[in-house]
């Protein structure tokens, strides 16, 4: 009988190979995927997130855990049947037009994916048209925008205005982040939320999809 605590440990400690191995064993033994995900994997991600929040873990720890989580989810996703979807929601993410910084945005994408969201990562220098098209095509729950420059952060407002003009603002939540961005700025431009780090972004995304 597979000890699923080993899976919890593997994800918490960012051990991809161990996570994949234990997941495969559990599947072979016929353990329900939903039980594996809810009982062990999500709990491990919550714990690493908590440690990060408390300054006991760092970005590489988050990334390694997210990588291990994704490795296990890739095995379990095809086995989920009917309404037992693993997806917490669908996120379209990108760095806004004029800005080519992608590390922070990719951290957020990776953490969201590791925590069960379906993520469509558009890349950098993304226009409002591209955000809208991707949101429509993917029936996104959330649009996530990043900017690292004071000169490009204002484009986030253009995207929100374009969502209004396209008539889909009410269908999609908007969250923003990046070094010059603040909670006050998020409110000012009409975004639904702001997070200052990747872990907070996951918590915010969960909150927005359950609202």
């Amino acid at each position: 009988m597979t000890d699923l605590n080993l899976l919890y440990d593997a994800i918490l400690n960012g051990k991809l190979e161990q996570a994949v191995e234990v997941t495969n064993q559990a599947v072979a033994e016929g353990i329900e995927p939903q039980e594996i995900i809810n009982g062990y994997m999500i709990k491990a991600m919550e714990e690493i997130g908590l440690r990060f929040q408390n300054g006991e873990a760092f970005v590489p720890n988050l990334l390694m855990s997210a990588r291990a989580m994704k490795g296990s989810l890739d095995i379990l996703r095809p086995l989920l049947k009917g309404s037992n979807s693993v997806s917490m929601g669908k996120v379209v993410i990108g760095t806004v037009k004029g800005d080519l910084h992608d590390i922070g945005k990719n951290l957020v994408a990776s953490m969201l994916e590791g925590c069960g969201f379906e993520v469509v990562n558009l890349g950098v220098d993304i226009s409002s048209d591209k955000f809208i098209q991707a949101a429509k095509e993917n029936k996104a729950d959330i649009i996530c925008m990043s900017a690292l420059l004071t000169t490009t952060m204002n484009y986030m407002k253009d995207v929100i205005d374009a969502l209004e003009a396209a008539g889909i603002r009410k269908d999609v939540k908007v969250m923003i982040g990046g070094a010059p961005v603040t909670e006050a700025f998020a409110k000012q431009i009409g975004a639904d939320g702001y997070s200052e780090n990747a872990n907070g972004a996951v918590a915010l995304a969960r909150q927005l999809v359950s609202a």
Binding site: V59, P60, L63, M64, R67, I103
Partner: peptide, 14 residues
Amino acid sequence: VKQQGDILDAFVAD
């Protein structure tokens, strides 16, 4: 490094 697709490697490179 980024094109190799490992987010941790990309983070360290940055």
